[in-house]
C-alpha cells in the first residue's frame, strides 16, 4: 500500500479509476461462481466484496467473518457504525499516544524557546519584572501545546490511515460509490490465510451480502 501515494501524486486518479476501473470490475462481478474459483489461484484478486444495507447487517456480517477466523477484512460505511470495531475484533486506535507526544513536544518547545529568547538571547526588563517569570508565559505554553497536539492529531490520524491514497482496489467495486451514501460494504482480502474464493463467497452469500464480486489488485 505505501506505493500508492507516489503513484497518485497528480491526484487525478479518482476520476480515471472510478471511470474505467469500475467498468473493469463490473465484468468481474458478473463472473459466475464456478469460474471464480480459478481466479483465486491467479493471484490477481485483491478482495471479495459484498454489499449490505444496514448497520445491523454489516455488524452481523463482521462478527461472522471474525468468528470464522478472518483477519484481513474491512467494512466500508457512510458513517462510523459504533460497535463495529468489536465485531471486527479491532484493537483501539493508537492515536492518543501520538497526540501525547505532540503535546509534550509543543510544551517543551514553548518553554525552551520562550526561556532562550526572553532570558538568554536578549533579556528585556519590562515593568521591572523578571526576564522569565513563568506566570506571564502560561498563555503561550498553553497555546503551543494545543497547536502541536492538534497537528499531531491531524497528521497522525492521516498517517495511521495511510491517507491520502487516491487509489485503492476497493474503489473498483461497482457499487463502491454507495459506501459513502447508503450502503455498508464488506471487503475480504485475498491475502487472508482463510481466504478461499469459493468458501468466502459462500459465507458472504449466507450472510445475505448483495452484489458479491471480486476486485483486482
Amino acid at each position: 500500500m505505501p506505493r500508492e501515494p507516489e503513484r497518485n501524486k497528480k491526484g487525478d486518479r479518482p476520476a480515471v479509476d472510478a471511470g474505467h476501473a469500475a467498468a473493469k470490475a463490473m465484468s468481474e462481478a458478473a463472473v459466475e461462481p464456478t469460474t471464480s474459483s480459478t481466479e483465486a489461484d491467479s493471484g490477481e484478486v485483491f478482495a471479495l466484496m459484498g454489499r449490505f444495507e444496514s448497520p445491523a447487517e454489516i455488524t452481523h456480517a463482521c462478527e461472522a467473518l471474525r468468528d470464522a477466523g478472518y483477519k484481513h477484512f474491512d467494512a466500508h460505511t457512510p458513517f462510523a457504525v459504533h460497535g463495529l470495531e468489536k465485531a471486527m475484533g479491532l484493537p483501539p486506535s493508537r492515536l492518543p499516544f501520538i497526540v501525547l507526544g505532540g503535546g509534550i513536544t509543543g510544551l517543551v518547545s514553548a518553554i525552551s524557546f520562550a526561556y532562550w529568547s526572553q532570558a538568554v538571547d536578549y533579556p528585556l526588563v519590562i515593568g521591572g519584572k523578571l526576564a522569565f517569570s513563568f506566570q506571564a508565559f502560561i498563555p503561550i505554553f498553553f497555546e503551543l501545546t494545543v497547536l502541536f497536539a492538534a497537528f499531531a492529531t491531524f497528521f497522525g490520524m492521516w498517517g495511521l490511515n495511510r491517507l491520502p491514497t487516491f487509489f485503492h482496489p476497493v474503489h473498483t467495486y461497482p457499487s463502491f460509490h454507495r459506501a459513502s451514501d447508503d450502503s455498508f460494504i464488506v471487503s475480504v482480502e485475498a491475502r487472508d490465510p482463510k481466504f478461499d474464493m469459493t468458501k468466502t463467497r459462500e459465507l458472504l452469500e449466507k450472510l445475505g451480502a448483495r452484489e458479491i464480486g471480486a476486485v483486482e489488485a
Partner: peptide, 19 residues
C-alpha cells in the same frame, strides 16, 4: 484524500475527532 469509509479508518478518525 481517497477516503473509503473503512472502519479501520473510522476508528482513528473518530478518536481524532474526539481529541
Amino acid at each position: 484524500l481517497g477516503w473509503r469509509g473503512s472502519h479501520r479508518h473510522w476508528l482513528n478518525y473518530e478518536r481524532a475527532y474526539g481529541i
